[in-house]
Amino acid sequence: MNSPDTILAPKRITAKNMTEKEFFYGHKACAGCGGSVAVRLALKVTGERTLAAFPAGCMAAVGFIYPQMAFQNNAIITTFPGVASMASGISVGAKALGLKDYKTVAFAGDGGTADIGLQALSGMIDRGDDLMYICYDNEAYMNTGIQKSGLTPYGTQTTTTPAGKNLPGTKTHKKNLFEIIAAHDIAYAATASIGYPQDYINKVNKAKQIKGPSFIHVYASCPTGWGTPTNTTIEIAKEVVDTGLFFLAEYENGEFKLNKNPKEFKSIKNHLSKQGRFKHLTDNDYDIITKQRDMKWERMRKFWTLP
């Protein structure tokens, strides 16, 4: 584990000073894909000596279609449940071979992280392996056609949680992924959103400095799965933070820290009703969603360090 003073405060990364090299380019992701923004930006921060691992999922499906290889750095598709362990193997193998100056990064979606990959991720953090894990959360299994995952929020219509007379779509709330990860006493974990790209890239940069496991949960909109126009990908991902349905936070040195504490939340209804997946919500559903949000914020504001 890193002690507080070993985490260096790195130089702030901006669009101006970041590398012009594109590492994720020519991929076949849907137009306006939020996951691509998350992967592309992270790789621009971690750089060309990144060893990237992707489980079966959107980014694997769109980036490695032989002979169209969309990663300029070393990258690999892993088993679906095993991205954390396979990436660990890369990192540990590189160490055993005496390689120097590299960063291993595992990228997985919400299903690959919070459901099928959770066990391997827990093992990776437990072992203290030296790698960064980024979960790009588009709130359902998008690659297979929009099925519910453990991070699909209440009320979402997916192809396995249809909304109808008897069901509101998804009946459960998002798993508390960030706190599950923090509970491992990881050196660094953060939440981010592609709607706040500056915040996100600097969290990636911070995680890059950690010698050991680090984790970022980044909210990444999906026009195809959410029923939103392709041009509002960033707008939606910003708005979700402003409504309080997602939050920007860090876990460091054993402490939770909110990075953004809006005085007033933007309208949930206005935000969700723009998305096809929430079109069916009733006032009762909005009440449930609002109550859940308020409970979460009450707890965060009470126990977490505020900005």
């Binding site: 095993g82 362990s85 396979m86 660990s88 193997g89 193998g93 093992g123 437990d126």
Partner: peptide
């Protein structure tokens, strides 16, 4: 010290791939 056999083989593949 992997947490399962699935991770054992996954880790070996990752290490082999480097």
């Amino acid at each position: 010290h992997v947490e399962s056999e699935h991770s054992a083989i996954s880790a070996c593949m990752g290490a082999s791939a480097i």
